[in-house]
Design a protein around this nucleic acid. Structure first.
Length: 899
DNA sequence: GCGGACTGCTTACCT
DNA sequence: ACAGGTAAGCAGTCCGCG
């Protein structure tokens, strides 16, 4: 294993022996800006030697931004004073006005001259494209796409195009519904062009990335978490787990008499300096390192601690910066205790999985909501079916042979999260890099809005479109609908009132990617909604129903093209290919990953248009999308009525059809395809569905007996376990129901279960842990009970100040405060387990409950009642006549019949 | 002084 | 830290009421 790619200069990444060899196919993974060199450094991965090469820009590319011609004098004035800037007249396409305009390009020697200081150009003049990170600018301008292949020849980098299997390519002709699909690269920017580009980009092979996971243990006092800022606590162990099977844990000797057997991977060292150096040496053999929260803890701690003389008690020698493989951008940030920035590696790339798994899009769309908490243990349990090593007491009291096992296990789990399911996560990151045109380490840390931003910015640059300023987009108008929820900006999806009761043979149909389809079909994009053409504005055909917006008919919108082509590729091409048995398993997996990555992007594409943090935020686009969505659903319901299908429920993009014939389902789907240009597909068929009168609350049993529960309290995570258990027992019974007759028997059994549980509750047979409500603390605990009043109050010195009132605290926070008083640290994201009591404030943390008599049984009966009523109200509806009496609460009735 | 109607806050869920 | 819509429970306020 060669180490020649490791660069020795202090905090500096430069071209030297590590330079990219010529004519070798390597994959671009990342790009960073090097302040020392005032250049962008590209990081290429060599799948062959499994190393990363750095490549310093040799094109003399410089940071820049634009201003419009009306600010010309101002720009000239600035460069007269500050000759470091250069100005260059040029032309750009302005999408907002749909005109080619003259602009002035302002070129600077370094990114900070553009933005980031009080003295930057964007603070002095109305500037365009001045907020884009320089390394991103560099990638866009050179059409460099992370996740794809390149080779070097002399001083230039060239794209390496993988030949795509002609058979696979030809499937496009079959699957994409377009007669004159032109697969040749063309300079005309149209739908075919994008389809072709995406396929060229996405079908390239994904290499394995050699990597190592690292986890450190640090001595700590009780109740105080060690912080890199202080770096006063000893690093006691460092665990390492490589994707090549390498496993090692270094532990600091603290008790030379310990005779316990160590795991074979353990190595005991005598000083902390040796410990850290040993780990650094191993790390340097890997181009990529993986951590869990390494940005905020492990890596900055190692970085700071390595330079602390306490690691070498005898000689007081620190590890010199040049021997530390970690790059911390601004260590002053750590010193002030602020949130750390991404931590880089001198010789490679660092991916912090904590950030990636926190990403909501990754959590929900890539991992189907399988994990709920963002801890290494919780995520490992859900995804790997494995967990951290458990121990009693304080970690600092562990004997070192146990500490070694514990630490190595953490490294194993961290690596495992990146390797499970055939390296799914790494593959997803690479594919999202390709789509978003962002470095893989940025993708792993950024939210979905930045992924989509990257995709759109890249295309703007490719087409010489001027990226609009936020104020230009705001001036395109506001929403013209009113939201149902106060504080929301516009109206969203339509929810159909469910028909109470039990319904047999229910077919659920839904529109495939409804919002992306609408964006495609209706040409929605920031420049096409409320466009600048009077002819479009005044054309009745171009008006968007339910709103005051109109759509351009003169040109295709960029967002519409990009989202539309991705949607079609996913629905018609990649989904099919991933199931195509005529290709190899490897290929099918690749297509499955691509399909998932596209799904993540598509699912967020509408949402970001209505999100302020999105730089191309445009309310009319989001407003229009949702409005057309409601019209689509409403018109389909009307058509159903017309042809005699009963619609018993629907939510946003789905409709529940009661016992429809397959011919009628086909008819309605065909109608939607031709009239609305959306794909209406059968999602699933229920043997029966039980609706209460509540929206987003139902239970359905599929043909195979699987029970689908949506929204019911019995399923919710905060519901006490004993109620949840009773609830799931009831589901077991309902699973067996096949016909209306079966319900009678089922109901008797349900009664029995409820009685048993209620009785156990009243006789105190249920363990307090089974009684706990489990509720998450969603924000920093000190921010509860704080509410700013609208009224301004005059303070003593006569100034108006905001008057802050403190209101009552939610129950889980009351419990959290009690826990805090007993010495437990409470932070955002923690789940508080509490029981309801007759004493004090009515709550007590379950861990602090000493006397079972404090439990407020009445409250638990109420909780049972409301939980089960959601089901019983629907069941009773049909059985009311059999019982022949008015019911009070459904639960009361059960008790009444018991006596 | 008390209860019901109401609002606001918070969480968890659905699409 | 992508959107809006719905449900539920709790805390507090307003208002009527001989």
């Amino acid at each position: 294993m060669t180490q020649e790619y490791f660069i020795k200069d202090e905090n500096k990444l430069s071209n030297n022996i590590s330079d990219l060899p010529e004519n070798k196919n390597v994959i671009l993974l990342s790009a960073i800006y090097s302040g020392e060199d005032q250049k962008v450094l590209l990081k290429f991965y060599d799948p062959d030697l499994e190393v990363i090469y750095f490549w310093k820009d040799r094109t003399n590319h410089k940071p820049y931004c634009y201003t419009k011609i009306e600010y010309k004098e101002k720009a000239e004035e600035i460069i007269k004073k500050e000759p470091k800037y250069n100005i260059l007249p040029t032309k750009k396409n302005d999408l907002i006005s749909d005109k080619e305009i003259d602009v002035i390009k302002i070129v600077a020697p370094d990114p900070l001259s553009i933005g980031g200081t009080d003295n930057s150009i964007r603070e002095k003049i109305t500037a365009w494209e001045a907020d884009i990170k320089y390394h991103e600018n560099y990638l866009y301008d050179n059409a460099l796409i992370p996740g794809t292949y390149y080779y070097r020849k002399n001083d230039n980098i060239y794209q390496y195009k993988y030949e795509i299997d002609p058979k696979i390519r030809n499937k496009l002709y079959e699957l994409i519904d377009n007669n004159n699909l032109d697969l040749l690269d063309t300079k005309t920017i149209n739908y075919n062009y994008y389809i072709s580009q995406w396929v060229n980009l996405l079908n390239q092979p994904i290499p394995d990335l050699k990597r190592i996971a690292i986890d450190i243990e640090v001595e700590s006092e009780e109740g105080r978490i060690p912080h890199p800022r202080d770096h006063d606590k000893t690093v006691t162990a460092i665990g390492l787990a490589g994707s090549d099977g390498f496993r090692k844990v270094y532990v600091l000797n603290k008790d030379s008499n310990e005779k316990n057997a160590f795991i074979s991977e353990a190595e005991v060292v005598e000083t902390e300096k040796e410990l850290i150096l040993a780990a650094f040496k191993d790390i340097k053999n890997y181009p990529i390192i993986i951590t869990f929260n390494g940005d905020d803890f492990d890596l900055p701690y190692l970085y700071m601690r390595a330079q602390d003389p306490r690691i070498d008690p005898l000689n007081k020698e620190i590890i010199k910066k040049e021997d530390i493989p970690i790059v911390v951008k601004r260590d002053t940030f750590i010193k002030r205790g602020m949130q750390a920035e991404p931590v880089n590696l001198k010789h490679g790339i660092h991916i912090d999985l904590f950030r990636t798994f926190q990403n909501r899009s990754i959590q929900i769309y890539a991992f189907n909501h399988k994990y709920a908490e963002y801890t290494l243990n919780a995520i490992s349990e859900s995804l790997l079916n494995d967990h951290k090593i458990e121990f009693e007491g304080d970690i600092s009291d562990l004997p070192i042979h146990k500490l070694a096992e514990y630490c190595l296990k953490d490294a194993d789990l961290t690596l495992g999260l990146s390797t499970f399911n055939d390296n799914l996560l790494m593959k997803l990151l690479i594919v999202i890099s390709r789509i978003s045109h962002l470095p893989i380490d940025d993708v792993s840390r950024f939210g979905v809005n930045q992924w989509i931003r990257g995709m759109l910015y890249f295309e703007h640059r490719q087409n010489n479109f001027l990226i609009p300023r936020r104020d230009e987009l705001i001036s395109k108008g506001v929403s013209s609908t009113t939201a149902i929820i106060k504080e929301k900006k516009y109206r969203g999806g339509l929810v159909v009132e469910p028909k109470l009761g039990i319904h047999f043979n229910v077919v659920v149909v839904d529109f495939a990617s409804l919002y992306p389809s609408i964006i495609k079909v209706h040409n929605l994009s920031y420049e096409t909604v409320n466009c600048s053409h009077l002819s479009c504005k005044n054309d009745p055909e171009q008006q968007i129903p339910e709103t005051t917006h109109w759509i351009c008919k003169r040109r295709r919108g960029l967002t519409s093209l990009l989202i539309g082509s991705l949607r079609d590729l996913r629905v018609r091409y990649y989904k099919q290919l991933s199931k195509d048995k005529t290709t190899t398993t490897d290929y099918r997996q690749l297509y499955e990953v691509i399909s998932q990555a596209i799904k993540v992007i598509l699912n967020a594409s509408y949402g970001v248009m209505g999100a302020e943090i999105f730089p191309l935020y445009c309310l009319p686009v989001a407003d229009a999308t949702a409005a057309i969505g409601r019209v689509t659903t409403t018109r389909t319901i009307e058509k159903c009525k017309q042809i005699g299908i009963e619609v018993i429920y629907g939510d946003t993009d789905s409709l529940f059809l009661k016992n429809p014939s397959s011919a009628k389902v086909k008819e309605i789907s065909e109608w939607a395809r031709t009239q609305l240009e959306v794909d209406l597909e059968i999602d699933k068929t229920y043997r029966y569905v039980v609706f209460s009168d509540l929206k987003k609350n139902y239970l359905g049993v599929l043909e195979d007996g699987t029970v689908d529960v949506k929204g019911l309290t019995g399923k919710k995570s905060h519901t006490p376990p004993f109620i949840r258990k009773a609830f799931y027992k009831i589901l077991e019974i309902l699973k067996e129901v096949n016909s209306e007759k079966d319900f009678q028997k089922a109901k008797e059994n349900i009664k029995k279960i409820i009685r048993i549980y209620a009785n156990d509750l009243e006789t105190g047979k249920i363990h307090p842990s089974e009684l706990s409500f489990n509720v998450m603390v969603n924000k920093s605990p000190d921010r509860y009970g704080e509410k700013t009043n609208n009224s301004k109050v005059k303070s003593i010195d006569g100034k108006n100040i905001d008057f802050i009132t403190y209101k009552g605290l939610p129950q889980h926070i009351k419990a959290a405060m009690l826990l805090h008083q007993s010495g437990r640290e409470i932070k955002a994201g923690d789940i508080i387990s509490y029981v309801k009591t007759k004493t004090n404030d009515g709550v007590k943390p379950v861990d602090l409950l000493r006397n079972i008599n404090e439990i407020d049984t009445e409250k638990y009966l109420e909780a049972m009642e409301s939980t089960f009523d959601q089901l019983l109200s629907a069941l009773n509806y049909n059985f009311q006549s059999i019982l022949g009496k008015d019911r009070q609460s459904n639960l009361d009735e059960l008790f009444w019949s018991k006596k």
